[in-house]
Design a protein around this nucleic acid. Sequence first.
DNA 1: TATTAAAATTGGTCGGACCACCGGACCACT
DNA 2: AGTGGTCCGGTGGTCCGACCAATTTTAATA
Lengths: 241, 241
Amino acid sequence: MATLNPLQKTRLHEGIVAQLQEKILSGEFRDGDKLPPERDLAESLNVNRSTLREAFKKLEMLDLVEIRHGDGVYVKDYLESGNLELLPALMRSGGGYDVAILKGLLDLRRLILPDVAYQSALNRTAEDLAEMERIIRDGGISLNDRDMMLYRLIARASRNIPFVIVLNFFNNSGLVAELLTLYFADPNNIKRTTRFYDEIFEAIRDRKPDRSKKIMYDLLIFAEGKTIKILNEQLNKDGMK
Amino acid sequence: MATLNPLQKTRLHEGIVAQLQEKILSGEFRDGDKLPPERDLAESLNVNRSTLREAFKKLEMLDLVEIRHGDGVYVKDYLESGNLELLPALMRSGGGYDVAILKGLLDLRRLILPDVAYQSALNRTAEDLAEMERIIRDGGISLNDRDMMLYRLIARASRNIPFVIVLNFFNNSGLVAELLTLYFADPNNIKRTTRFYDEIFEAIRDRKPDRSKKIMYDLLIFAEGKTIKILNEQLNKDGMK
DNA sequence: TATTAAAATTGGTCGGACCACCGGACCACT
DNA sequence: AGTGGTCCGGTGGTCCGACCAATTTTAATA
């Protein structure tokens, strides 16, 4: 408790969230622990109680803590209640990437996206197609943005809202963006993905769900392999320094 | 005695969150809309500005709004940024179940859980097995709780943290709990699920990933079919009234 | 007309006050 | 010994009013 640092950021309560979240995810605060009273904690952090409470509201929404009126604030077990939003933070807990968690995330993506493509081929409209084609042909968009936009369009065309929202998680977590930058550093990968765009577009256009699914799956397998390889090389380099 | 439900205390800011969330999900507040200033909105809602701000912090965490210092609070497109936590609310938007969203959620579950079982069969420890057996044999737990606890144990045994956290979503959203109650109302379904417990336990115990995966998949297909059927019957009944 | 400076608007933080709820201690009665 | 009643300190929940900080709008100026 004594190691909480006062902070100065653009938004104080965000800094508090980050600090407390880190302490929970790292195990410094464990399941069942009772945090100090808001008044005390606010004083320790050199912030107003209102500000601290705004931070607590976010932590509560992340299911990291449970706030009991008249009692106190208790740390919850994030493995039992934690939110998906925690995964990016969890993956970076040690400075670099936690490869096990990264692989788990890639597992999730590989399990879901092929079926998104499948349903997209079944339910896409002419408008969906037009938008997809526009994105694919548009040269004014960065590789990263184009990639994420296309996936979003495919998901929307599936008319499956849970699919769309799960994809948001991958797109907005910043995770995919980071990996894509590494991935697209290799021109061969750009070529492979560009081919993928054409293939998946055709398959969805022609309403071929099974083929769409396979095309998506193959691309994901390819991209996963490359990405893991790149990360391993980085790790080795860092390790030798 | 058993029918007494603990009444939930409602915190003011939670009511505000629910109210604003509903207006956003229903489309009354659209993407890009600027909300009234905190001071005005607080007065309209008859609450203090601090209280309103706590609500805003939660809405921001749900990615339903974007707060810009010196500018205002803007509604975001939940289809582009929305959080998984929104799905339960979205599914109940019209009073009953939005069947399309429900099916999408079942899709997700069916895509993921079989592979959770697969990895669980590969990575489970003796301790995992012991806990699973304890849950399966324990007669003192409600059907619902036992079901959710077993799934959680299977997920943990997979040693795949993203899997565990995704499963939390299904377990904690209240969604599965509701459906399970309907599902377990039929003794045949209880029998089928009890058989599933034994089968999946054996398969995981014997480290048979493919068999575990298939057992999980078959059970999910069965349960989905039954659940959808029950819901359709309910809809028809309600429609005839 | 374009630029710049002041003013207004709006979210962010603050300090202090009071209310609502919980838990434990203590008491009265059985 | 056990049950219920009462009280009290601690803690989260809400409120008030003020000022700070970022942005937008408006007005003054070149």
